[in-house]
Write a protein that binds this DNA or RNA. Structure first.
Lengths: 248, 248
DNA sequence: CGTGCCTTTGACAAGTATCAACCCAAGTGG
DNA sequence: CCACTTGGGTTGATACTTGTCAAAGGCACG
């Protein structure tokens, strides 16, 4: 098996203060920039922009595949993507959803350790890894930035291990809802661009359990369904308490 | 909540080829060096050695605590430690066991995101974070090395998410057994320095389930108990197949 | 206006957790 | 030296959360 650097999110950079996207006390996420290569541009490395090519992917198209040679790194500029690993019999674990600004495929390994597919229509800018490494040699700034992104990515991974290993279905779903980006204007409205099956594979549940848990939240007036893909938070306090695991 | 860089293992450095410690096809791990600051010494940064102080911890002593200011980073030189996160009601997830050569507490955040305690008697060398950062500015080598360690750490984290979210109890225990370091001489002998409770909190199970699963392996002649803390692999093929998730 | 995908809901099964008892080995103190 | 205590480990009975299998509703799209 090989490895790669996971997705990293500009919005979780320490410089910007860590935006809690997976854990307990999630605050509203600000609107994400989707400008080209936003995460790196402020390191004044315009040279990067020149090295990038722009690509689009339709829903369910594969962006990169679990064991293909890791020649490219990506920066998601539009849409939502999922990163996943599979067991030989088809069981799937989604290890993260990527949003604009997130990185993908950064690695020191020869092959990708996981697959990534578009959930919604996606635009990325793609860098040749070799070129990226060359640029990195000349610009320690960039490496520093990537290290801090990896550090944050790792912290999120640990939060998710706690979620997968120790939280109940209700706590998982609550955590997930609060981890999604929301618009400042509609702070109580949560958009779910992915299917129940995707959510289940992210939370280590089945799609039926996800559906039932959401129905339970509706019954308890914690949330309300605008559509199956848009839910409105009615009782943020209870949802947060659930996500934090303050019951059992 | 705050973040930090997780543990990183010199033996999983890309330069050395990735040693599979958590996933499916785990090969035998070589005996680990436990020389002082082994992981960094070969970057020719003797200056680091000067900046370090040596500390010892007895079993269950706290090395660092979940929300304390993250002033220090550690390199484990002897013994085994556990890294864990807790929910408010006491549920615990162990996110990793550290072995000699592993790093701990590297971070770009103000506070540690998790706790670490000694499992066996432990020796570490401790660096002041401020000093480490200063050294890093002068030696991009070091930063490069840390980034590659973080990248590998992240890959292991993703493997563990797959384990926690999608593997059965038997598959989890099998994966865990194969992820532990073994001596070359006694390649089929696995030493468990931690309690069943620790193993359970690492795998997202209860200690009873861990115990029963191990008993099951004994009954099926997959392993044999030398003592509760030392188990001998009898059927490596079946154990590996289980760990890889090739059944269900 | 089908057709297909996603979602919801129900009945039931299964895996794991919980609660409890007991065993064993290693201290500890009378 | 031995009774007692303590912490870890195993095992059993039972409960409960979640998974599995199945059916039906809703919505978009051709």
């Amino acid at each position: 098996m090989k490895t790669q650097l996971g997705s990293s999110n500009i919005h979780t950079l320490p410089e910007a203060g860590r935006k809690e996207r997976d854990g307990s006390g999630c605050e509203a996420c600000p609107v994400r920039e989707s400008s080209m290569c936003a995460a790196l541009s402020d390191t004044r490395l315009e040279v990067l922009d020149a090295a990038a090519s722009r690509l689009s992917f339709e829903p369910d198209e594969t962006i990169l595949f679990e064991s293909d040679p890791a020649d490219f790194a990506f920066n998601l500029t539009e849409g939502v993507a999922r990163v996943s690993k599979m067991l030989p019999d088809g069981r799937r674990q989604i290890t993260g959803f990527l949003h604009p600004g997130d990185f993908l495929g950064l690695s020191y390994q020869d092959c990708y350790a996981y697959s990534a597919e578009a959930v919604t229509p996606v635009k990325v800018c793609r860098f040749r890894k070799a070129e990226l490494n060359r640029i990195m040699r000349d610009h320690p700034d960039l490496e520093h930035r990537l290290l801090s992104m990896a550090s944050n990515e790792l912290a999120l991974a640990h939060d998710r291990m706690l979620l997968l290993g120790r939280k109940s279905a209700a706590e998982k779903v609550a955590s997930f809802l609060l981890s999604l980006p929301r618009k400042e204007e509609r702070i109580d409205e949560i958009d779910l661009p992915m299917t129940r099956g995707d959510i289940a594979d992210y939370l280590g549940l089945t799609l039926e359990t996800v559906s039932r848990t959401l129905s339970g939240f509706v019954r308890q007036q914690i949330v309300r369904n605008a559509t199956p893909r848009i839910i409105v938070v009615l009782d943020m306090a209870r949802l947060s308490a659930l996500a934090a695991g303050e019951g059992r």
